[in-house]
Design a protein around this nucleic acid. Structure first.
Length: 215
DNA sequence: CGTTGGATTGGCT
DNA sequence: GCCAATCCAACGC
């Protein structure tokens, strides 16, 4: 069932990690439901040079400063949108970016929303921009309180995850100072095919000959 | 008011 | 690996 607002009223890093395995639900205007398991997140904190909130509240990032559980959706590179959920105390300026989902419900609709091409299910919500497209999340939802009655987008409880299934790394695509770039505030479920990030270029296992030669 | 560059993606070399 | 696409908020003047 829907997570309580208190879940989001905590440190963004804790929220980001605990969101793994939870379920993001989107109710479309026609009533259709889309659902996916959250498999990759990133935390953005106050005093974090990679965060939109770093230079204070503006018209765009205002949802980051609203009560926990507020959606913050913004346009990136003029063509994609990213979906975040505000966390911590209101006015703090923190949020968790949802980077990828493992699709669970409404796959055919997601497929239509993504493109005419036939995508594998693990590709439907892989990456923050793709996820927004597949889940019909646009900027009109920025500032939306996910805990309001009849909310059309919310997070539902999932099953817990063994700690050894959770990976952490620096955040993807961030610029700024060394601290922001190296902070390991990206969390993901290890081995999940929907997790984003450039795939490692094909690497060949050492040949049997190499193993025999070099031990 | 003009400029700049981005929490990305997919296609091509 | 490299790079263009395409919009607009943020910021400087």
């Amino acid at each position: 069932m829907r997570l309580p607002r208190a879940f989001f009223a905590r440190d963004a890093r804790l929220v980001a990690e605990e969101l793994l395995g939870m379920s993001l639900v989107r109710v479309l205007p026609g009533g259709s439901r889309l659902r996916g398991t959250i498999v990759e997140t990133e935390a953005y904190l106050p005093d974090d040079r990679a965060s939109h909130s770093f230079r204070g509240r503006t018209a765009r990032n205002a949802p980051m400063f609203m009560r926990p559980g507020t959606a913050y959706v913004y346009l990136i590179y003029g063509m994609h949108t990213c979906f975040n959920i505000s966390t911590g105390t209101a006015s703090l300026g923190a949020a968790v970016l949802i980077r990828a989902l493992a699709p669970v419900e409404g796959l055919a609709i997601m497929q239509n929303l993504r493109s005419l091409k036939d995508l594998r299910s693990s590709e439907l919500c892989r990456g923050p921009g793709n996820l927004c497209k597949a889940m019909a999340i646009g900027r009109e939802l920025s500032g939306y309180d996910m805990h309001q009655r009849g909310s059309v987008i919310f997070v539902a409880r999932g099953h817990g995850l063994p700690a050894q299934d959770i990976g952490a790394s620096p955040r993807i695509g961030v610029r700024g100072d060394e601290a922001a770039i190296s902070a390991p505030w990206r969390y993901y479920i290890m081995g999940e095919p929907s997790v984003s990030g450039r795939r490692q270029s094909p690497r060949h296992r050492p040949s049997m000959r190499a193993l025999a030669t070099h031990g």
